[in-house]
């Protein structure tokens, strides 16, 4: 089981299946088969197809789409996407851990208030918030104005449409994704273990490394999954904050499907992304079954 809610409880009170139950289950089965399983299989099939000059899919087998991934252009974009996502994940973990720690150690009414404070921006659309960063980062924007009035710089620095802007946008969007799962695992941790470590003479740093970090590992893995996966596939942030200069894999997929109309290649890129996602999920959860549920 990858996620806690997938674990089926086998209570003895369950009723055996009747034809009637199957009939009621049919809409769900149909929906999942039609709109979850079938699209993925079709995407997989298309990724091995060719296309004609008009961009129509020709159903003849080729592995060329996957081979094209190793073209320097696409390979660089792919590596960059993974790199940006990894950097974003790292920054989110480092930035989010103290916040999660602080909130989890509050007592009840205060804790809910802090948590709500973190969650409100997280519910406010990422696009809208990314859009706000343009106002802040553009050359005649607020940050440049501030830096100039402080006489730190004389000419406006180029902040928008840089890799830095993309990473800031990604961290800004995904930071709450890191805070919440880490918070959940810190909150579940038995505090007496910390006292025990302190009583036994452990240095706070050693306590952190040997006690706290292993105990909150499930939360950290969940945070990695929740930040890394969407960050790799994101295209709107790199579009708005990176301009055309910093395309990520998501931009290429979007482009292949909507502008270049090379669906087979887009599908191949999508399948690689999906494989990367499955690998991350497996590394994070699959190997340690029920790690999250514990």
């Amino acid at each position: 089981m990858i996620f806690p809610w997938t674990s089926a409880d086998d209570s003895s009170r369950k009723h055996p299946t009747s034809p009637r139950a199957w009939l009621l289950l049919a809409p769900l089965l149909g929906w999942l088969a039609l709109f979850v399983v079938a699209p993925t299989l079709i995407l997989l099939a298309v990724s091995f197809c060719q296309r004609d000059e008009l961009g129509r899919i020709v159903w003849s087998f080729t592995t060329e789409n996957y081979a094209r991934l190793f073209d320097a252009t696409y390979w660089n974009i792919f590596v960059r996407s993974v790199g940006y996502a990894a950097l974003t994940t790292l920054l989110c973990l480092v930035g989010g851990y103290p916040v999660a720690w602080f909130i989890a150690r509050q007592t009840e009414p205060a804790r809910s208030r802090w948590l709500l404070l973190v969650m409100i921006p997280f519910w406010a659309s990422f696009l809208v918030r990314t859009f706000a960063w343009i106002t802040i980062l553009k050359s005649e924007g607020l940050l440049n104005g501030l830096l100039q009035s402080l006489r730190l710089i004389s000419v406006p620095a180029e902040l928008l449409y840089t890799p830095g802007a993309v990473v800031v946008g990604l961290v800004y969007t995904y930071l709450p994704f890191a805070i919440l799962p880490i918070y959940a695992s810190v909150e579940k941790m038995d505090r007496q273990l910390l006292e025990a470590a302190a009583d036994l003479g452990a240095h706070p740093f050693a306590t952190f490394r040997k006690v706290i970090l292993p105990l909150t590992r499930p939360g950290i893995m969940a945070a990695v999954l929740l930040v890394f996966v969407p960050a790799v596939g994101m295209f709107a942030i790199s579009d708005l904050l990176g301009g055309a200069r910093v395309p990520l894999i998501g931009n290429v997929i979007e482009n292949q499907f909507l502008q270049a109309r090379n669906w087979p290649f887009g599908a191949a890129l999508g399948m690689v992304l999906l494989a990367l996602f499955a690998l991350t999920a497996w590394l994070g959860f699959g190997r340690k079954r029920g790690a999250v549920a514990s």
Binding site: L43, I253, L273
Partner: peptide, 17 residues
């Protein structure tokens, strides 16, 4: 559960296809 956590771009293009 997998449809909860599939990257949205994958869900988008696979449904488009």
């Amino acid at each position: 559960a997998s449809s909860l956590v599939t990257p949205e771009i994958i869900m988008g293009v696979s449904l488009l296809v």
